[in-house]
């Protein structure tokens, strides 16, 4: 499974279980409370992956319990197809500085963008904080 978090982290692991907040077995109740789908996840044998151009690196993370609100995307990985993608695996320590720099420029750009939107275009300041994906 691939999980992308709101802070931009990409985690690969085995989905062991999940729960579902906001959903209940009683059909009538469900109409009254609109389900907010916030599934907490348990990920086993998790690795964090970072990418830069045609390279990626992995770092072992282990067993995760993720709060549902922080999940952006959750998808199954086709391991056979993954082999066909020509990405080169490199050492984490080599790739990490590149990745950090990339994240930093992205953050800076988003900050400038939201600043302009707020100052000149009449957008409000709220929303989008902490979205690094």
């Amino acid at each position: 499974m691939l999980v992308i978090l709101r802070d931009g982290r990409k985690l690969h692991g085995v989905l062991r279980s999940y729960d579902q907040f906001g959903e209940c077995s009683d059909a009538k109740l469900q109409v009254e409370f609109t389900p907010v789908s916030q599934a907490n996840l348990v990920l086993e044998d998790t690795v964090e992956r970072i990418y830069h151009e045609n390279a990626f690196a992995e770092s072992w993370r282990g067993l995760y319990l993720i709060r549902g609100e922080n999940v952006v995307l959750l998808g199954e990985i086709d391991l056979d197809q993954e082999d066909e993608i020509p990405l080169q695996q490199v050492d984490w320590n080599i790739l990490e500085p590149y990745h950090k720099k990339e994240a930093e420029t992205k953050k800076q750009r988003e900050e400038t963008k939201s600043h302009i939107l707020y100052e000149k275009k009449g957008f409000c300041k709220e929303g989008g904080e902490g979205d690094g994906y």
Partner: peptide, 15 residues
């Protein structure tokens, strides 16, 4: 407070 948590990492052996 639970609502402030992003994730928890627990020992692999726990499962």
């Amino acid at each position: 407070r639970g609502s402030t948590i992003k994730y928890l990492r627990v020992p692999d052996t726990l499962l």
